[in-house]
Design a protein around this nucleic acid. Sequence first.
DNA 1: CGCCCATGTCAAAAATAATTAACATGGGTT
DNA 2: AACCCATGTTAATTATTTTTGACATGGGCG
Lengths: 71, 71
Amino acid sequence: MGRPSPLGNRVRELREERGMTQAELGEAIGVTRQTVAAIEQNRYSPSLESAFRIARLFERGVEDVFYWSGS
Amino acid sequence: MGRPSPLGNRVRELREERGMTQAELGEAIGVTRQTVAAIEQNRYSPSLESAFRIARLFERGVEDVFYWSGS
DNA sequence: CGCCCATGTCAAAAATAATTAACATGGGTT
DNA sequence: AACCCATGTTAATTATTTTTGACATGGGCG
């Protein structure tokens, strides 16, 4: 299972606000829909590059999309 | 060589401002000094978790430490 | 009901990040 | 010169992320 992630994110919320599917979001930032699903469910910490791509797509700051939620 | 990273960072500058060595920074955030050196030289995109740890140590936002510099 | 579509999930493999253990270099100091 | 110390760098390995391909579920709609 891997240790719990200290990060949380609002990717799903922001994606749904825009009426996008996981597949569309993945396509837009260059990852697969499975990767988007894993990120939304916080199954692992994405690369900083993926995080920037998502934030830029949503026109938000990285820290508006991803946040520290524990040590 | 790997494709050029679209990210840049100010880790070295912020580390030096605080008079820390690469080894000390690595110890503080839980990675090795080689990893710190690689991040400073932008040899790869760190995990989002490492990026948050660095930013929090420096009491800065993630985007104040790391920035998008290309496509 | 039957058919899409979006999502969840899984296993195996590929790609990339990070570790470990070396050795090299240059600066400063004695 | 000899000695530290911080940094650079590399090869080999381990850990983690991401991909690929597959199959399952539930909702909406004909």
